[in-house]
Design a binder for these strands. Structure first.
Lengths: 245, 245
DNA sequence: TGACATATATCTAATTCGCATCTTAGTTAT
DNA sequence: ATAACTAAGATGCGAATTAGATATATGTCA
């Protein structure tokens, strides 16, 4: 049977469907390391483990809208960088029922990240430790950002460790050919701050003059004329992202 | 509440859910141009327009498995390069009901592409014309590969033009840092064939010595020792992809 | 044997990249 | 006031990579 014939004869409620959710990786830079917002599960399944914020996709909302709704509801944040990551559909992802989840990556400036953390009591910040270099990929580990002394990794619920790893992979891969890094900075920022973000995401130190040159030669940055305040040394020029990035 | 009790009390059907499908972009190189397999719709909605092969995701199959099933059923192909592209969830994608579709990109060697075309009567090959250069993105147009004389573009059903454009974008973007191009070639191939594939996908001519060097320096290729047959000039070395790509 | 078409090697210009150094603009201490 | 200090920002140069063009080698066929 061809696709169209099948669809035409299809009774919308004749067959069971997988449930559809969105899961959000809310990332930022915390203490010079990549970090994500997690919430501790209090109920079955996977009670006491850490999960990404998520929710079901409504019948009358797009996937992007569902992701934004979860973002508002769980973290009180509106309008950050938000992009679809990947769709996870393993059969046993969730023991309750068949759930297919569309994972999203949201990038927050450090201030918005802290604000979300303070605003929502159930959210916790987790440092994401990335043991692999470059863009090859692999598993990542999450550690509590509250007490860096406890070096025991957080136990993640469902397949959320995989989602977190993919988020880091995407972030690293897009970092230096797209403007994705700017989403982790405030509207006005110095070149040093931009370099700090890149170094935190990549996990390696970068050469300062080379980094400056590359960034300025891209033509994405516009100097504001204003300068950084509150330093005890020469204040740095503040830049903003040029309008048609 | 114990996990068992929780699971027992959980009603999986409490809320309405969008339907979930997979749509496949079956791509190859045809007459030195990127091409895709389409099927003509015979019924409403979008009758007489061209659509990507697709199907519903069963309750007991993963997304990848659903894509492979559609690939076998519609094109009689097994085991090509298959990767998830993006998930499309606009509200009005399909006028019949809310359908969320996970798009997949399948890459076929030219021989397998032609074989699928001959094996399935309802499938047609379409040349994908890409008006934008580089990796910026934008809309693409499909033309019939049967009669290249008729230069009127094929009208695509649903949001399948968007899916097709994204497939090209992904293919172009991954072409020269991943081994994705090899999926469009037979097991043994010459460097000239590899370059032809890259030129067809990118839509620009490439410098031969530079291309050779880059490919060989990657370390992904292993010479087979055998040589191309049937040429009226010097036969080229046949290469294969090194095992752990 | 020679013409032909392409593979393969060589050479050179251009670009990028990393590193070291120097200058500049502020604050802070004397 | 002045000197010391710190990090920003600019400059210069060699190494390394890359791209383009050209030349040579190789195998087939007339």
């Amino acid at each position: 049977m061809s696709e169209h014939a099948f669809l035409a004869a299809y009774d919308p409620n004749a067959f069971a469907r997988p449930a559809l959710t969105v899961d959000l990786v809310l990332m930022s830079i915390h203490a010079d390391r990549p970090a994500a917002l997690l919430l501790k599960r209090t109920e079955h399944p996977h009670a006491d483990r850490w999960a990404l914020p998520g929710g079901f996709v409504g019948m009358d909302e797009t996937l992007d809208a569902a992701a934004e709704r979860v973002l508002r509801a769980k973290a009180g944040i509106a309008g950050p960088h938000l992009e679809q990551l990947y769709t996870f559909g393993a059969l046993d992802r969730d023991p309750r029922m068949r759930i297919v989840s569309v994972a999203y990556l949201a990038l927050l400036p450090e201030a918005a990240f802290r604000q979300a953390l303070d605003g929502a009591a159930e959210l916790s910040a987790a440092i994401v430790e990335v043991p692999w270099a470059g863009e090859t990929g692999g598993p990542v580990t999450a550690f509590s950002a509250q007490d860096p002394g406890r070096r025991s990794p957080l136990s993640l619920a469902f397949d959320h460790a995989d989602i977190l790893a993919l988020a880091i992979l995407r972030l690293r891969g897009k970092l230096d050919y797209s403007g994705i890094g700017f989403a982790l900075l405030p509207e006005h920022f110095t070149l040093r701050q931009l370099q700090d973000v890149h170094e935190a995401i990549l996990g390696i130190p970068l050469n300062k003059p080379a980094f400056r040159r590359r960034m300025l030669d891209r033509g994405w940055l516009a100097p504001t004329g204003a300068r950084e305040a509150g330093t005890s040394f020469r204040p740095a020029e503040l830049y903003r992202v040029r309008k048609p990035l």
